[in-house]
Design a protein around this nucleic acid. Structure first.
Length: 120
RNA sequence: AGAGGCGGCCGGACAGCUGCGCGGCAAAAAGUAAGAUUUGACUGUGAGGAAAGUCCGGGCUUUAUGGAAACAAGACACCGGAUAACUUCCGGCCGGAGGAAUCCGAGGGAAAGCGCCACAGAAAAUUACCGCCGAAAAUUUUUUCGGUAAGGUUGAAAAGGCGAGGUAAAAGCUCACCGCUGGGGCAGAAAUGUCACAGGCAAGGCAAGCCCUGUCUAAAGCAAGACCAAGUUAGGGUAAGGUUUAUCCUUAGUGGAGCGUUUUCACUCCGGCCCAGGAGGUAGGUCGCAAGAGCGGUUUGGCAACAAUCCGCCAAGAUGAAUAGCUGUCGCGGAUAUCUUUGCUUGCAAAGCAAUAUCUGUCACAAAACCCGGCUUAUAGGUCGCCUUAAAUU
RNA sequence: GGAGAGAUGGCAGAGUGGUCUAAUGCGGCAGACUCGAAAUCUGUUGUACGGUUUUCCGUACCUAGGGUUCAAAUCCCUAUCUCUCCG
């Protein structure tokens, strides 16, 4: 499966997900929402880095690291039919990668519970 | 040796796995206004010395028909050279810092003119308060007139400095030395240096105040711009001007228009025709966009910057923006442990350094966005070459 | 990516070479008025270092570092940060 098809790019999508639930950790903030309108059962991910965390290179690098983390974790843990947005924080571009993975796992588990709970 | 100065180079290395951008190759499905797109146990390639700040100079593009002169605005400024160009670079001069190597300097003009120089001080640029000296008057220590700028006070700065002569008191008034100015000789391509001569001191500072002299400069920027072009809009192009905004009117080579302003010279265009399969151009796409003032070397010329010549090489091209993650070995930095073993320092104890073992690491500054030449700023650590050597240490 | 503007006390904001923390307003503190509060009125109020150790005095600081000048918040250069505009 190509990675490209799973990426959110439109502003509209980001705004919709921002209305959903969110979880904050030291390295990353995760927002998520279920999307029932789309036919496919594939999960989607968007990446965000504000100007606050640094210059262009720092923002790009942060998003890149988040992408590397997503590749390892999401195939096992992500809910199908859900949309996630990962927001970089100011330590995302230099924190140890193991910590980043740990935070992602934790946030994903917690946010999935909230999503399923909210559904009922 | 140590200390100091100048310049060059490197900017962790190698291997493996997963993943990303671009190019090539192969395959796939769909068929679009156009460009596309997707897949790959295929393949090639992928950040810097500052890519940064955007402070200068160019190329390139658009606007503008080209040249000349004046004005306006701005920039620069010792001399010579280099360069596409520069406020850059190289060599030299002068001034300053240092013991030296060496480093630093926006370094034209204040006798073209205007302006400013607070406070203090008599006076801040044709000056005289206190003084000093002489004369006259009055008179018991004052006034008036004249000479003078040695001495005093202020200040950032006070009209050549110092000594001697001179005088009523003084003064370049005169003289020696130093400084200054002038024209001349010599050296040099020049800035400038130097030599003797003469003048006889005659006008302080600020031009990063206005300004003067000389030289140079059109403006904006790849979000420049060119092309294709869904939707949508309704006439458009080819001269100028006018209004009532109508494909209307007026003018037409003895006229009008042509982009900082004015003048001038040359040049070009202009009185009806063309197009509905046409025009404009939004979303979107393609190009601009990677062979260049290119990079690495050879030889020749030059003190050098640099130029010429020959040989070899092709080295990122994104646009919601590619280089990431992990593992191993070595390197580097940091921490801890052990003197059991080995080496070194010390007379010994004790301790330290190296070695060894273990653990650990945002591994300096920093990330291309049209491209080059500079400048400026940031930068852990390593390495090479040349030069100086006063003091301190060995 | 490109173009431009700005930075002054706790906050806003004058001051464009001259004696100087630097007008004014808001704020803070103290006092008056009030039973108490608000409003009003009056006074006061920056930081750091050094001397002194209550007071008081001196020096430095107008984003930072240099330069020009006798003298710089002001003129010139460099850097840092903030803001605005350009599809």
């Amino acid at each position: 499966m190509s990675e490209k098809k799973t990426i959110l790019k439109k502003r509209k999508d980001f705004l919709r997900v921002a209305r959903g639930v969110h979880v904050v950790t030291t390295c990353v903030i995760v927002q998520a929402a279920l999307n029932l309108s789309k036919k496919s059962n594939q999960w989607h991910v968007g990446y965000t880095a504000t100007k606050k965390i640094g210059k262009a290179y720092v923002r790009n690098r942060s998003k890149r690291r988040l992408r590397a983390g997503v590749r390892q974790i999401f195939p096992q843990l992500a809910l199908p039919n859900a949309e996630y947005v990962l927001i970089s924080r100011h330590n995302t571009h230099y924190c140890p990668f193991a910590l980043l993975l740990k935070d992602l796992k934790y946030a994903l588990k917690k946010i999935n519970e909230q999503l399923l709970g909210g559904k009922r």
